[in-house]
Amino acid sequence: MIKRKWSLQEQCQFLKRMGELLTRGYPLSEAIESLLYQMPNKKKLELSQCLADLREGYPFYQVLAKLHFNQHLIGYVYFAEQHGGLAAAFQDGSEMMLKRDRDFEKLKKLFVYPLFLIFITAVLFIFVERIILPRFSSLFISMSLKPNFFTKVVSTFGELLPYLTIGILFLFLLLLCYYFFRFRHFSQIGQKKMLVSLPVIGIFFKLFYTHYFSVQISYLLAGGLSVHEALSLFENNDKQPLYKELGRELKHGLRKGDKLEDILISYPFFERELAHIIRHGQRNGKLDQELFFFSRYCLNLLEERTEKMLKTIQPCLYVFIGFLIVSMYLAVLLPMFHLLEGF
């Protein structure tokens, strides 16, 4: 049925409009029918099939799974269908994923242009280091002149470049082998524990998982479910293996008599403040609100740290590329100045 996958932006915009229509009182099927006329022909066929599936009794999250929607968006829809807050969940989920997509696009722009510059610089560098500098070096030796600092920099970097390239390729192959033969065979919880232990990027994974867990639990509690019932819904969520596994483990801990906040502390992919928020929310009887505001805090912090990382990495890349280019030019120009002075 699906020939071309929906882009993440198309998925988010679709759910965002759905949320707006549901807020105005549209039933789910009528909201889809309303959006049907705004879609291109291929999307119309797919949404027509969605309507047919809904009328046959399929839940909306399964319909979106057939369209190969993003797992996190499907998760938002799954939980929304349980607590009844479809409109708010659709809008929040789409907004969160749109922000994530924008951050990813910024990262792509951050790396694509510098990588293009690095490629051009590498070609120029090989030309200078392999063809031009050897001729100047032989001339320097015949004239008993010492190589300047920039010539040494270019020569040293030229000697190290093959080893760096081989090292990067070897590391990439090693990580690839580790993923296929070890990492993907771990449990979902085991995988996430390893991801958050990674330097620099681990904190981003931790904030994302904390945000997602907090906001879904808050919606379910606000819908009148108990903590145990909410975790049962996590356990029955086949579309998100991590939260299915997590719901099962948390329920097992609660049955043993452990407190929810004490269990969550043992999971390193959640912020430690989450346990304090749950404890505080249980004391004042506003656990759903406390979790909702904490999820917003995590999302804002995630955005701030992403912006900070982008502002740190980009100048460093440009400084490195600029230094290489200046070194190459000076490695060529300074010997020419010495020759001119000799005349």
Rank of each mutant, 00 (worst) to 15 (best):
F323Y: 03
F150C: 08
Q282C: 02
K108W: 02
M336G: 09
V196T: 13
E303I: 11
E81Q: 14
G25T: 07
H276Q: 13
I263G: 03
N41F: 15
H83D: 15
E159G: 06
D288N: 12
K42V: 02
L22D: 15
C50P: 02
Q216C: 10
H228R: 09
V123Y: 02
D258W: 07
H252R: 09
L287A: 06
L54S: 05
R305H: 04
L231H: 11
K108C: 03
D53L: 09
Q282E: 14
D101Q: 13
F270W: 00
Q82C: 10
N148F: 08
F294T: 00
Y219T: 01
E159L: 11
E245C: 03
K193P: 00
L333H: 01
Q62C: 10
K244H: 12
T312W: 14
L107F: 09
V332A: 13
E249A: 11
L334K: 10
K99P: 03
R17M: 12
Y267C: 00
L340D: 07
F270Q: 05
V326E: 02
I168Y: 11
H276R: 12
Q62D: 11
I277Q: 03
F292V: 06
Q91A: 00
P241A: 05
M96R: 12
S142E: 15
G167Y: 03
P59C: 07
T312R: 03
L67N: 06
K106D: 11
L339Y: 13
Q62N: 09
N236D: 14
E159T: 14
F69R: 02
L160V: 08
Y212G: 00
F172T: 13
R305Y: 15
H83E: 15
A31T: 08
T210M: 09
W6P: 07
F323V: 10
C177T: 12
G322H: 02
A80E: 07
Q9L: 08
L299A: 14
R296T: 14
I32E: 08
N237K: 05
Q9K: 14
M309K: 06
T306N: 08
N300D: 14
L176T: 11
L301N: 15
R272F: 05
E30R: 07
L161N: 10
M96P: 04
D103I: 12
P199D: 04
M309L: 14
L51D: 03
L15H: 05
E159Y: 12
L334V: 15
P335M: 11
